[in-house]
């Protein structure tokens, strides 16, 4: 498939906000990078992220960087319906199902499942969250395909084999449980599963964190290959600027649950504008 520059974003996110706790009217005003905190001093609520607005184009990898607790994972978990946002909207440009205008956060649970099963893929940092470790690798992929509406057992089996081959899992291990696999292999099974429904949006949450450098390298190369061969929009969450530099053309920097800077990745790395980004970039080198 040829990656064509399309003019319509695959995903638009408007003012996504997630607050844990009782909430008071001043939660958002009292938190954020200017205050250096994400806990509201008035009511004790935690503002995990607030006023997050961005868009991703088909075929684009958008990087989201920030330290632990900056709200990175909250964003993708809300988008994957793993948690419910407090406020905000997201619009998905799904190929031809007419739901382009619907705020996906306002769908009913059945519609949300349909969006997730047919249009989203997710890779968690921890393979335990994305896989059933005691179900075979092929079975994990079959589960996702069944959810996406596949019914023919032979076709499911073929597709599973194809995806595992693409993510470099030896086919003879297709019927083995990922619990027996190395961390890097588990992550590749997760990627195969996430790709199963040919997603419009692929969410990657710290997918190489905690892996050996050589294992990381192969996974990052795999993501590059996926970018070349699909039109999926990808959101890549990481605290590793090296990963961003290698994979994403645009980057969002998060601090205390807010976007402090958005720009081209080379500009973020070479001419960071926000004080925090400067600190982040200088901490690496």
């Amino acid at each position: 498939m040829t990656p064509t520059p399309a003019s319509a974003p695959a995903l638009r996110v408007n003012n996504l906000t997630k607050i844990y706790g009782s909430r008071c009217p001043d939660c958002i005003e009292n938190t954020g990078p200017d205050h250096g905190r994400n806990v509201c001093p008035a009511c004790g609520s935690v503002v995990a992220c607030a006023n997050i607005t961005f868009e991703v184009m088909p075929g684009e990898i958008l990087g989201i960087v920030g330290e632990s607790g900056s709200g990175k994972s909250t964003i993708v978990r809300c988008l994957h319906f793993d948690m419910e946002p407090t406020m905000g909207a997201a619009y998905l440009r799904c190929s031809g199902n007419g739901s382009d205008d619907a705020n996906i956060f306002q769908l009913n649970s059945q519609e949300m499942r349909a969006v997730r099963n047919q249009h989203l893929g997710m890779v968690y940092q921890n393979p335990q969250m994305g896989l059933r470790l005691d179900v075979t690798a092929g079975g994990n992929i079959a589960e996702k395909l069944l959810a996406a509406g596949w019914r023919n057992v032979g076709m499911i089996r073929d597709r599973g084999g194809l995806l595992l081959k693409r993510t470099e899992i030896p086919l003879e291990r297709m019927d083995e449980a990922p619990r027996n696999f190395s961390g890097g292999m588990q992550q590749r099974v997760q990627i195969a599963k996430a790709l199963a429904n040919d997603p419009d949006v692929l969410l990657l949450d710290e997918l190489t964190t905690g892996l050996d450098v050589s294992v990381q390298a192969r996974i990052l190369d795999l993501i590059k290959e996926i970018r070349r061969s699909t039109d999926a929009a990808m959101i890549l969450i990481t605290h590793d600027l090296g990963v961003i530099k290698l994979l994403s053309e645009r980057t969002i920097v998060l601090k205390d649950g807010r976007i402090v800077e958005t720009g081209l990745t080379d500009q973020i790395l070479e001419d960071p504008q926000h004080e925090y980004t400067q600190l982040l970039v200088n901490s690496v080198l």
């Binding site: 720009g263 500009q267 504008q273």
Partner: peptide, 9 residues
Amino acid sequence: LKCMYRTYL
């Protein structure tokens, strides 16, 4: 030159 390429703002 980097401003022209937008590596610098």
